[in-house]
Each structure stands twice: as structure tokens, then as C-alpha cells.
């Protein structure tokens, strides 16, 4: 019990810190591609850790009470997190592609092979 009592606040803390970094990133970075970097990676990772905190909490409740409802809770949380991780990455890919197709160039940029390939 004491182990989960320390793990849950730590995981929630990690999750909230990374979610906050993602939000600061989209407010701070200069163009849409760098904002996508901040958004996709950090919010996915932070939400995975929030989900892990929920899973650990449900596991301790499952061992304390033996209530099968908590097992369902764990399974559904894991499925929600998996769906989130897959859809976030694919959605970021779609936004990046759409932004490039709509003619938005990376603003500070040292090299852009995609525009060169399109212009050929």
C-alpha cells in the first residue's frame, strides 16, 4: 500500500509536468512543425503516465477489495491510452502533411528537402 501510495503521486506529477511542457511548447515555439513536436510527444507521454497512475490505483483497489469491476477499469484504461497513442501520432502526421500542402514553409529552417522534391 505504501509503495502505491508513493508511486501514484509521482506518476501524476510526471504526467502533469509533461502535459504542462506540451502546452508551454505550443505557446512558445515559432512555427507549426515545432509546435507539433511539442504537442504530440509530450501530451501523449504525459497522458500515458496519468493512465499508469490510474492503473496502479485500480490494481491496489483490486487486491484490497477483490472487486472485479476494477479489472474492467484497468482494461478499459489501457485501451483508451493505446487508442490515444496511435491516433495522436497519426493525427500529427496528417496535420504536418496538410500544413505543408497548404503552402506553409517551416519558418526558421536550415534545409527543406520536401519543397525541393516538389519543385523538381
Amino acid at each position: 500500500m505504501s509503495l502505491s501510495g508513493t508511486l501514484i503521486p509521482v506518476f501524476i506529477g510526471i504526467g502533469l509536468v509533461f502535459n504542462a511542457l506540451g502546452v508551454i511548447g505550443i505557446l512558445r515555439f515559432p512555427d507549426v512543425y515545432t509546435r507539433l513536436h511539442a504537442e504530440t510527444k509530450t501530451t501523449t507521454f504525459g497522458t500515458i503516465f496519468l493512465g499508469l497512475a490510474v492503473v496502479i490505483y485500480s490494481l491496489t483497489r483490486l487486491f484490497d477489495t477483490g472487486d472485479g469491476e476494477y479489472l474492467t477499469f484497468i482494461i478499459h484504461t489501457v485501451i483508451a491510452i493505446a487508442a490515444l497513442a496511435i491516433t495522436n501520432a497519426t493525427g500529427a502526421h496528417a496535420i504536418a502533411r496538410a500544413a505543408h500542402m497548404s503552402g506553409q514553409k517551416p519558418a526558421p529552417c536550415v534545409v527543406d528537402r520536401l519543397s525541393e522534391a516538389e519543385n523538381d
Partner: peptide
Amino acid sequence: PDRVVALDTVNTLTIASMIL
């Protein structure tokens, strides 16, 4: 596209708060 990125962030955070 910037607005879509922000909307995606809001969606992810909403999902996290729903689980909590």
C-alpha cells in the same frame, strides 16, 4: 494548422481528465 494543433492538445487533455 496552428489552431488544429491547439485543438488536438485540448482533445488529448480532455481524454486525460475523463479518465481521472
